[in-house]
């Protein structure tokens, strides 16, 4: 496995993990601060919830990771590949919160993973035809 491959693999998996963690923190913070109301009381309850700080830290971490990836990765495929978190958040919600998954959602998740594998293959192809450029 060459350096570029390792960089993309580690980067996108890290992005997925941090993004998923942040979404789970959001969900936990929202659940604990329920019921929702558009008033200062609800906002105060959210701010007293430790999970919300996990979510904020996650967003900052994801931002730093994504900017580092973008330095080398083309933005079109990188933005598409960042949708991997749709799959991981779905899996984590089913596992942790017992959310039900429709068969069509599982097909969708499989298509997202397949699409990312195709994009990874596409990067190899582009790297071979235009050496030294991440375009």
């Amino acid at each position: 496995m060459n350096t570029r491959w390792r960089f993309y693999l580690v980067g996108f998996l890290l992005l997925m993990a941090i993004d998923t963690g942040a979404q789970l923190c959001f969900k936990l913070a929202a659940t604990h601060a329920a019921p929702f109301a558009a008033d200062p009381g609800w906002l105060l309850r959210v701010l007293r919830e430790p999970w919300v700080y996990g979510a904020i830290a996650g967003y900052l971490g994801a931002f730093v990771t994504y900017m580092t990836l973008l330095k080398h990765a083309p933005v079109g495929p990188a933005f598409a590949a960042s949708h991997l978190q749709v799959v991981s958040v779905m899996a984590a919600s089913a596992w942790l919160f017992g959310e039900r998954l429709a068969p069509l959602q599982l097909v969708g998740a499989a298509l997202i993973v397949l699409g990312i594998l195709v994009l990874a293959r596409a990067e190899d192809e582009v790297a071979q035809t235009t050496p030294g450029h991440a375009r």
Binding site: Q105, I112, V113, L114, G115, R121, E125
Partner: peptide, 19 residues
């Protein structure tokens, strides 16, 4: 390949959202 990859991901996100 890039177009195919992005098309597959788009379709996948649509199906997950529709479910």
């Amino acid at each position: 390949r890039r177009l195919l990859g992005v098309a597959l991901i788009t379709l996948g996100v649509v199906l997950v959202g529709a479910g």
